Amino acid sequence: MAATFASWPARAENAPFTLAWSAPAGCPSAEDIVDATRLRLNEAAPDRSAELLVTGTVTEERGGFVVELQTTDASGRAVGRRAIRVNGPRCRAVEEPTALVLALLVASAPPGTTPLPPPEPPEAPPPEAPPSEPSPRTPPSGFARTTASPRLAPEARESPAHVALGLDGVTSVGALPIAGLGVAIRGTYATGSLLFGVEGSFEVGGTVRARGGEVAFQLARASLLAGVQLLATRRLELALTVRACGGTLRVLPTNVSVVRTNARPAAFVGSGLLLRMPLVPGFHAEVFPELEATIVRDQFNIRDGDVLYPIHTPERFAARLSLGLAYVFR
């Protein structure tokens, strides 16, 4: 893209623009961004009034910076909007990609827009007025409906695609005779507001004593997940998920005989809420409560002579809670 802009000749039809810029300390100034943009457009400062207002906001987020650009004309009509993410600790690095994107927005704006009215001269402050905190830059009067904001609402940001790998502790009730305890490994891929994932887990469910012996229970299963992101902020990500899983419910008998086989199929479907909260760069805490319906419910019996004794049948509904850590690759 840089080579493309560098090769463009100066075009008289490019609409003149002005930039309202809000950025943390250490970031490029508005003048730096404007000069870099005009360099890529291969044009000098225009000799006519600005026709476009570009509002630029820089926020620090998750080991990098997000630049929001919004272009409007004198009537307040939105012309273009872009979000740029730059990874790294130095805010100066946003200058190059911001100038390239801004040049694209200006070059694609329709020419001949009504010029912006000149800004009114500021009123002199009262002689004895107490000092006040600096307020954000006010755009020209022709843009009364599009004020610059130091931080856009989280919903306006485009969430970049990412992969997460998590290791969780798991507890469940309903599938095993007593509360199950185990571990789960989960991988997810998120793009836009959609989430997809796979998971493998293993749980033990204690021991049931019967007829002079005992039977231990284990549950191993694999799952497919899909979901939609409900909330994404700097402090919390929340997704509604659905799950389909299949596996094996296995028994380990001691001094008793289990009827049929020691391993039976198990199947579940369910829904839950996956919450992720950032701890340090890359690492997130995970909380994942779920409710499930048991699709395959096979009864386990032991035999004592010619008599069968039931020892466990999975419940029709089960609950599950996962707590752990995930690393997010962006």
Rank of each mutant, 00 (worst) to 15 (best):
P46C: 03
G76H: 07
V66D: 06
A10N: 09
T98W: 14
A6G: 12
A285W: 01
A222T: 13
I295T: 09
F5V: 00
T171K: 05
D73Y: 03
E95W: 02
V67W: 02
V34R: 14
V251Y: 01
F65V: 01
S201I: 13
A45P: 13
A263C: 08
L275N: 08
G200Q: 10
A210N: 10
Q70R: 10
F143Y: 07
R38L: 11
A285E: 02
I311R: 04
M277R: 12
T37N: 12
S108M: 11
Y309M: 08
T72Q: 01
P127W: 11
F196H: 13
V242S: 13
G197V: 09
P16G: 04
G187W: 04
P121Q: 10
E155C: 11
V296I: 10
L273A: 14
S7P: 03
L325A: 15
A156W: 06
P131F: 13
P314H: 03
T55L: 13
R234F: 04
N14W: 04
P177S: 12
T138V: 14
L279P: 00
L230I: 07
T171W: 11
L249H: 00
R250S: 07
D47T: 11
V251F: 00
P265V: 05
D47M: 03
I311T: 01
Q299C: 06
S172K: 07
R221K: 08
E292N: 12
A153H: 14
G166Q: 14
P130C: 09
F217G: 04
A175N: 09
V251A: 06
T57K: 11
A2V: 11
V215N: 04
R264A: 03
R276D: 04
V54R: 01
